[in-house]
Design a protein around this nucleic acid. Structure first.
Lengths: 257, 257
DNA sequence: CGTCTAATTGAAGCATCTCAACATGCGTGG
DNA sequence: CCACGCATGTTGAGATGCTTCAATTAGACG
C-alpha cells in the first residue's frame, strides 16, 4: 500500500533515504470502495489525495443528456484526484469499476512533503504530465480513427500500463469493464463496440471473455492500433534525477542560506 | 514579455517580492516564428521552455496516414512545452498559426527557481493541470456531441480564454485558423466544418469572416455548446496561496534545519 | 430456477465522409 | 494596375460508418 506510492514515484529513479522516510512517515488511511461507486464525485473538493492500491477505476464526466463519457481508465498505482490538490474542484469524477482499495493522504501533509522535498514534487508533477499525455493520445485517436483502431489502441495501452506495474499474466490481463464502458470511453454505441470486438476476435487479434483480455497477435494488434507506447513515458528518467547529487547539494545550499 | 510570465503566474494570486525578483532575473530570450512553422517539433527534446508572448499556436500530432490532429489551441501567455521540462521528449508538436513571438527560458534556470520557490513550482504545476483539464473537456466533447455543438464549444472556450488575458474586443476576437484547422481540431472534415459554420451563422449565433469571430448570441451559443467555463479554472485561487504567510515560514523552518 | 445484467443480432436512419467541381480572395510579379 | 496562381471557402451528390430502436440470448447470482 504505502510501498506502492514509493514504487510509483521511484518509477522515475531512486529516491533518497530522507525522501523515502518522509513518504513512509505519511499516515496513510485505507478505505474500500464498492464496484460502480464513486471514489471522487464530479465537482467534489476533496481534502485528501486518493491513490488506487487495488482495483480498476475510470475518470468520467456526465453529459447534459445524462450520458457518461469515460475519459481515462485508472489502474493500481494511479492517483485519482491529484488535480484537486492545486485546483481544488474536480472537473470530473472518478468511479470504481470493480471493488477498489484506496489509500488517502491529506492535502496538508502532501503539500508539506512537496515543500520539503522538491524532487518529490517533481515526481508527482510528472504524474500530472503523463496523465495529460495519455489524454492527448486519446484525443488524437478519437474522431479520426475508426472504431476498430480505437479499441485496439485501448487494449494495447492498458496492457502496457498493467505490464509496467506487474499486473499482466503474459499476454493476458484482467479488464473489469462492460462493453458499455468501452463505448462510453471510445465514444461509440454499445452495439458498435460489440460488433467491433467480434471483428477483432474474428481476425484473431484478441480474445475477451469474462473480463479477461488476451492478446493473441501482438504485431497485428499494435499495427491496427498504430500503437506507440512512447506517450505513456513508462520508463522515462527525467533529467533532474540524473543529477541527483548536485541537485541535492544545490537544495542544501538554498536551505543553508 | 517578461511581465506576461509574471502575470500568468499571478493569475492564481500575488507573488512575493522575492518570487517576482527571481522571475524578473530570468534571462529571457525572444524569437519569432513564422506562421505555419513549428515552435516545438513533435518528438523534440528542447532544452528551454517556450512561452507565447504574441500570436496563436496549436498542439498537434501527425497521424499514420499523414493527417494532422490538433489537440489544443494556444494563445498569448500559454506555455508550449512545459511537458519536456520533466518528461524530456515532446509527445506532440506545437505549431504557430500566425506570426508568433516566443520567449524562452533554459530548463536549468527554471528548475532552479522552482527549487528555491516552491510556490512558483506549484503555480507552474497548475498550468499543467489546467492544460489537462482542457484536454479532458475536448475529449468529452469529441465523439459524443454532434459537430454543431462541438464547434460552438470551441468558439466559447477560446473567447473565454482570450477574455481572461484581455484579448477580446467585446464579443469579437481574432482567430487566425482555417476551416481545415477547425476540422483537424474537432475531428471533422473541412466540408462538414464549412456547413456547420454556415448553420451557426444562419442561426444567428456567430459571424466568422477573415479570421475574426463575433459572438452574436451568447446565451444560445453557450446553450448549444453546453459550455461551462469552470473547467478552464480561469480564476481559481489554489489553497496554498491563501496561506502564503504560514507556508513561507514553514519552508523557512525547513531551510533553517 | 427465476431475475437481472450484459452480450448479441437485425434492420432502418442519419451524421458525417469522400470525391469532385467551382468560387472567392489575396499576394506577387509583370 | 492588372493578371496570374495558390490557398481557402463553398456547393452538390453518392457512399458509409455508426447510431438508434427493438428484440433475443447468454451468463451470473441468490
Amino acid at each position: 500500500m504505502l510501498s506502492s506510492l514509493v514504487r510509483r514515484l521511484e518509477q522515475f529513479g531512486p529516491l533518497s533515504e530522507a525522501e523515502q522516510q518522509a513518504l513512509r512517515a505519511l499516515p496513510l488511511r485505507l478505505r474500500d470502495v464498492a464496484a460502480r461507486r464513486d471514489i471522487v464525485p464530479e465537482g467534489d473538493q476533496p481534502k485528501d489525495v486518493s491513490l488506487i492500491v487495488e482495483g480498476f477505476a475510470c475518470r468520467y464526466k456526465l453529459l447534459g443528456d445524462g450520458r457518461r463519457r469515460i475519459l481515462a481508465f485508472l489502474i493500481p498505482g494511479d492517483i485519482c484526484d491529484l488535480q484537486a490538490l492545486l485546483l481544488r474542484r474536480m472537473d470530473h469524477g472518478v468511479a470504481a469499476l470493480n471493488r477498489n482499495r484506496i489509500a488517502t493522504v491529506p492535502h496538508e501533509l502532501l503539500l508539506d512533503i512537496i515543500r520539503r522535498h522538491p524532487r518529490i514534487a517533481l515526481a508527482v508533477w510528472c504524474d500530472t504530465m503523463r496523465d495529460a499525455a495519455t489524454c492527448r493520445q486519446w484525443l488524437a485517436n478519437m474522431g479520426r480513427s475508426p472504431a476498430y483502431a480505437r479499441i485496439a489502441h485501448l487494449l494495447c495501452e492498458i496492457w502496457s500500463r498493467l505490464q509496467a506495474v506487474g499486473l499482466t499474466n503474459g499476454d493476458a490481463y484482467e479488464l473489469p469493464v462492460t462493453q458499455t464502458d468501452i463505448g462510453d470511453a471510445m465514444g461509440l454505441s454499445v452495439v458498435h463496440v460489440n460488433r467491433t470486438l467480434q471483428q477483432l476476435r474474428a481476425d484473431g487479434l484478441i480474445s475477451f471473455r469474462s473480463n479477461v483480455v488476451m492478446v493473441l497477435d501482438w504485431p497485428r494488434l499494435q499495427a491496427a492500433a498504430e500503437f506507440d507506447p512512447a506517450y505513456l513515458q513508462l520508463n522515462a528518467v527525467p533529467p533532474f534525477f540524473l543529477k541527483s547529487r548536485t541537485r541535492r547539494s544545490a537544495v542544501s545550499q538554498v536551505a543553508a542560506q
